[in-house]
Simulated assay, not measured.
Amino acid sequence: MKKLLLFTIFVTSIFFTTDFSTKIFAKEITNIQWKKSVAKGKKLSKFRETVTSPALGKKAWKIILLPMDCGRDNEGDYSDCKNNGRDAVVGHGGGDRARSEYSSDKRYTGEKWISVSIYLPNDFKSVEPVSTSLFQIYEWGKKDQQRHPRMMLRVKNGVLEPRYFPVNGRDVSGKINKHLFIDDMRDKWTTIIFHTKMGKKAGEGFVKMYVNDVLYNEYSGRTGYGGRFFNKFGIYHSWISRWTRNNDGYENYPTQVVYYDNLFRTNSKDKLLKLIKN
């Protein structure tokens, strides 16, 4: 009966699976297939909910990250909870992080238009100086199939801004034309559009971030190492131990909730705007 129901939903183009599935797709919210990222063993396994309010259309996704709720990959020994012991650098070996995040299945190259709409509730609390990312562009490298972030949309100093990782993992802020303040995003939807060209050569690539058709941020230069790219959305905390710098232990570490809609990726701006409008 369950398989029959899922098949019926699929053929009527309203395809939805619960968090027990490895992949999710909802036409009204996204044109991309997504799967859980580093989620095995998390306390809250069903960290995504489909909601009707707040939503830009009929539905949106609610993502919840409990304090320090870390997991691990289904395969291999990578874990957000502890270092795998092969690398002394936490950023390479895992540990000191947590996430409620999804990764896109299909990888791409070249020029793309990408959108994400984000709604922050009034009671959204920052965990700074812990690094918090809400959306990512990732590269799947050729050498040993290594994966590296190329852009993370992060909360930093009360602003949601892209941080670029073009060379050796060091992040740069790009050219900031306008700030997207967290306080201005509360209790309303903010639609962000990225125009990107991922390239290996220094003068080839770029990433431009628009809000309401206004250019907020831009980066030009090398944007990858010749691999293929994919996207991530959800709440991702890294360097959680930084919380203790300004707090007495982890007792007051907050739960974070973020809503998502308009998770689209296309080859042209016109196609992207049509999807957003619909």
Rank of each mutant, 00 (worst) to 15 (best):
K2F: 14
K3C: 06
K3P: 00
L4F: 07
L5W: 10
V11C: 09
T12S: 10
I14Q: 11
I14W: 08
F20S: 14
F20A: 11
F20C: 12
F25M: 08
N31S: 02
I32D: 03
K40W: 15
K43M: 11
F47Q: 08
K58G: 03
A60V: 04
K62M: 08
L66N: 14
M68N: 15
C81F: 01
N83L: 04
N83W: 12
G85R: 08
V90R: 14
G91R: 10
G91W: 13
G94Y: 14
D96Y: 06
A98V: 03
R99Y: 09
S100Y: 06
S100E: 12
K106S: 10
G110H: 06
K112M: 05
S126K: 10
S133T: 14
S133M: 15
F135L: 06
Q146L: 15
L153Y: 13
L160I: 09
Y164E: 05
F165Y: 09
R170K: 14
R170F: 08
G174N: 07
K175T: 09
N177W: 04
D183R: 04
W189M: 05
I193T: 04
H195V: 01
K200V: 12
K208R: 13
V214D: 02
N217Q: 05
G221Q: 09
R222H: 14
T223A: 07
Y225M: 05
F230P: 00
G234A: 02
S238C: 10
W243Y: 14
T244G: 06
R245T: 05
N246C: 14
N246L: 15
V258W: 08
N262F: 06
N262R: 09
L263N: 09
N267H: 07
S268Q: 01
S268F: 07
K269D: 01
I276A: 02
N278L: 00
